[in-house]
Design a protein around this nucleic acid. Structure first.
Lengths: 202, 202
DNA sequence: ACCCACCACTGACAATTGTCACCGTCGGGT
DNA sequence: ACCCGACGGTGACAATTGTCAGTGGTGGGT
């Protein structure tokens, strides 16, 4: 019996997956959580064989949780199940020690089998996605550049960002200018958008 | 047997829902589509009792498709199933003649029952959501203001928007200024963001 | 006939944003 | 000891953006 922990914020998706796994006689969902914060404590309690994690969750992200899981329960296999096949996400997932990366665009039928393959020691990663990730440029942004871009995502002015990060407005403008240059865009809105799309901000 | 048409762009979600409905002995998924464009043609072919539509789909939106469905197949009940409980979405759905509005945050268990209730002639709409929608201000934006906001969502400059809409840059700035005023925001990025969040742009 | 809202545009002005050149500090490599 | 990159900052300048006051035109009510 393969014991599964399910982390996914959309209740309907989470419930549907749980029902599907319940139909397979070698799979068993032993825990369901809707936030990133619950992942590690719950895993410590139920000791699952596999953790199937969404990335964009309330609280900490699935990627962050994956890193912590590897450290605290090394024998638990981590798989990522996400909407977005962003190169940066794939990179981070692999770096975090995940052994599977699935997109919600794919067919449900393959899901159960992917879990079984991971348990047999295989790594599940779509070849096209792997190639695209390798083709794509790795994250060129520094930590501070990521900070200012993340802070500018809600349309904040430079003064706002400076206030949030306790920096001078001029400094913020310099980081933004650098980020705009590195992303090949024309203003902070475009820069934040492409950084987000590439998975450089999570 | 209740004949269902399922429109949802995430293949995994779509497949999972289809499996779930297949477990109920009075429900039958007679068609699945992943784009808005396919909805009406497919419905004309299979003549479903209920169409369960996501809103944000490639091609035309589920709301647009709902309007067309009401016109071409009046006996088909339309239900909306969406991630976002935006007031503008609820308003448009009801105006389009939908008899159900469900959010993906809710439990799966209620889904099948919601469909049965709609078939009995009931309208399925969360009371809290209905109240929130009535409390929220209706869309204050004119058609042109919506146009310029939609065009500015990707970080385009005013000159870009003017080019896209065949307007003078000054005109675009005026519409943006009006939209910024009406949304109570401070720049076009914030304005586009709040308009989108309220469901004023779909 | 009149008002009103929306559309499209212009021009002037102030504020914000983006670029650039430059200053210094700190910590890692080699 | 030296170089390099990231960090934090300043000041100057140009470009973009946001505001405001106008000018018309259209079409729908009353």
């Amino acid at each position: 019996m393969i014991r599964i922990l399910l982390a996914e914020d959309q209740a309907m998706m989470r419930g549907a997956l749980a029902v599907l796994f319940g139909l397979e006689d070698d799979l068993e969902v032993v825990a369901q959580v809707g936030t990133g914060t619950e992942i590690v404590p719950t895993a410590l309690e139920v000791r699952p064989d596999v953790a199937l994690l969404d990335i964009e969750l309330p609280g900490i992200s699935g990627l962050e949780a994956a890193r912590e899981l590897r450290a605290s329960i090394p024998e638990c296999r981590v798989m990522i199940l996400t909407t977005f096949s962003r190169p940066g996400y794939v990179r981070q997932a692999m770096a975090a020690g995940a052994v599977g990366f699935l997109v919600k665009d794919g067919p449900v039928e393959e899901l159960a089998d992917a879990i079984r393959r991971v348990l047999r020691g295989e790594t599940v990663l779509d070849p096209g996605l792997a190639a695209a990730t390798l083709r794509a440029a790795p994250n060129p942004l520094t930590a501070r550049e990521r900070d200012v871009l993340a802070a500018s995502e809600d349309g904040s002015s430079i003064a706002d960002i400076a206030g949030q990060l306790f920096l001078s407005p001029s400094t913020v403008r310099n980081y933004l200018s650098a980020a705009i240059g590195k992303t090949g865009t024309r203003n902070k809105t475009e820069a934040a958008l492409t950084a987000r799309r590439n998975g450089w901000l999570a």
